[in-house]
Amino acid sequence: MSALQQLPAGSWILAAVGVANFLAVLAVLRALAPSDPMAARVRAHGQRRAELRAALLKPRSTVRRQPIGLARRMVEQLKLHRGEDARTAAGLLAQAGWRSADATSVFLAIRVAGPLLLALIAYAAAPLLRPDAGNFARLTIAGLGAVAGVYLPMILLKNAIKRRQIKLLKGLPDVLDLFVICAEAGLSLDAAVGRVGREIGASAPDLADELGLTAVELGFLSDRREALTNLARRTGMPQVRGLVNTLVQTEKYGTPLAQSLRVLAAEFRDTRMMTAEEKAARLPATLTVPMILFVLPPLFIILIGPAIIQVLATSFS
């Protein structure tokens, strides 16, 4: 019998408790450690810079698509990456913050295999929902699962886009003010975009990421208008599109950048105030139904309840 087998059971329990405590302390320390969102943005910008450098150094015809994973192989075998749906999906994924080619392949593969997988899962889970379900009921549930698999990926993607656009919209007025300051200080467009992206990294990381990528593209792409247009395409917001149009017109016609941005910032600030006033005006109509359901019944009970109790006590006495 070895020495390990001769140890008592209490020693094994103490050792297990010690290892569990050590892992718990590590988990707590990792949770309390400060995160560095700047590192992820630096890696993303470096990757985009490498892609642009490779695209400029290599001819477009020699760039090969190497399949990565099952999803990419499925998409390439079905030739889904060559159609209009692939370009539309890539644009929507970029608006949601997923800009890699692998994200497009995974999304297209989910759209293809999702209905089949959800149909099989629904068909297998039908007896759990209805133990007496026949074949027709199970096929009906499977059909509903297939329909959900068709629409669910796009619904989730649009919700992710909407949440990201709300985050971008919150930091846009500050970005315009910083652009005005940089333009009045004499910075060029490239320097202003890079400086504003660095300054708003803590308050608006998503918008800082987009501006950082735009600064990288401004330095590598031959057409500066394409770099600015890519910013509007990646966000899909009319406010950012207005900013891009102002920057493009400034580059084309040589109009003063600070004056144009100051006018645009005032318009955005007025639009933001009008949106807040609109929400405040809708508030009374929105609170009508909750007040009728949750405020008036307790109020009537408090006001009329004692009188009813007194009347009932007098009648029964």
Rank of each mutant, 00 (worst) to 15 (best):
Y253E: 15
G219D: 01
T235R: 01
T246L: 14
G254F: 13
R224V: 04
E226H: 13
A232D: 02
G242E: 13
D223Y: 08
D209H: 10
E210S: 08
M237E: 10
T246Y: 10
T214Y: 02
L218F: 00
E226D: 14
R234S: 11
V244T: 08
R225H: 14
L221A: 02
V248T: 13
R225P: 12
D209A: 14
L218M: 06
A227H: 06
S222V: 05
R233G: 07
L218K: 05
G236A: 09
M237R: 08
E217M: 05
L228F: 07
K252L: 15
A227L: 08
T229C: 13
E210G: 01
V248D: 11
V216Y: 03
R225F: 13
G219I: 00
R233M: 07
R234Y: 09
R234G: 05
G236T: 06
A215F: 00
L243C: 12
G254Y: 10
L211N: 06
G254M: 11
R234L: 06
A232I: 05
G219R: 00
G236Y: 04
V240L: 04
A215C: 02
G242N: 13
S222K: 03
G254C: 11
R234D: 08
L221E: 01
Q239G: 06
L228G: 06
Y253S: 14
D206L: 15
F220K: 01
L213A: 05
L218I: 03
V244A: 04
Q239D: 14
A232Y: 01
N245H: 10
A208P: 09
N230H: 11
V240F: 05
A227R: 05
A227V: 05
E217H: 03
M237L: 11
N245R: 10
K252F: 15
R241W: 01
A227F: 02
T229H: 13
V244I: 01
D209T: 10
T214A: 04
Q249A: 15
G254P: 12
L211F: 08
R241P: 05
L221V: 04
N245E: 10
A208R: 06
R234Q: 09
L207I: 14
V248S: 14
N245A: 13
D223S: 11
G212Q: 03
Y253F: 15
G236F: 06
